[in-house]
Design a protein around this nucleic acid. Structure first.
Length: 182
DNA sequence: CCCTGATTCGC
DNA sequence: GCGAATCAGG
């Protein structure tokens, strides 16, 4: 049962096409697809002749855009959330947005909590820029914390939680990939 | 330093 | 065809 790294199968190429078309950056696409580097993604993109997009929205830093996007969980906390910017940025053009108001806790313990248990959890007060704002616990509880991990530029989450929040919309019925494990 | 895509070139 | 290394840039 070797985890043979899938090559550019039709499905993966199709996913690449859609994500690239959606404006995701090469690195973000690489994270989404998994098993490939951003260079691999870029290389494939060029070989497919997909280069030259109209809108490089993935380059948050390159656009000088703030990566503060309101997620559902934050909306509930909006009254408490600090004012980062007077104007609110447009929502991210990501694929399947599947946010969780609360941490998804299946009855059967997943391997993930163990791997993420050591994450530095922070309060709303300590939540700084480029920190993962994945909600942990009851937002109304004083014990509420955010993940606080290193967030991916352009995304409100760290790599682990981004993979949970932004799972490839299609073709994930049986391809259950445990986030934060590789 | 963080990131972006583009290109080269050995495999 | 593939992708790491590298380049050029924000």
């Amino acid at each position: 049962m070797t985890e043979a790294v899938p090559s550019w199968t039709d499905e993966r190429v199709d996913l690449l096409r859609r994500l690239w078309d959606d404006g995701l950056s090469a690195s973000q696409i690489a994270l989404q697809i998994g098993g490939v580097s951003r260079n691999a993604v870029i290389g494939k993109v060029h070989r497919l002749g997909l280069s030259g997009r109209v809108k490089p929205i993935g380059a948050a830093s390159a656009l000088g855009r703030r990566k503060e996007d309101l997620v559902p969980a934050e909306v509930a906390l909006e009254s408490v959330v600090v004012i980062e910017e007077p104007t609110l940025p447009e929502p991210p053009a990501i694929v399947a947005h599947r946010p969780a108001p609360d941490f998804p806790k299946p009855p059967q313990a997943v391997a993930e909590p163990v791997a993420l248990a050591v994450s530095e959890r922070v309060t709303i007060m300590d939540l700084r820029d480029s920190m993962c704002r994945w909600p942990m616990g009851d937002p109304t509880s004083p014990e509420f914390r955010f993940c606080g991990g290193r967030a991916i530029t352009g995304l409100p989450y760290c790599t682990q939680h981004a993979q949970i929040a932004y799972q490839p919309a299609a073709e994930r019925k049986r391809d259950r990939r445990v986030a934060g494990f590789r």
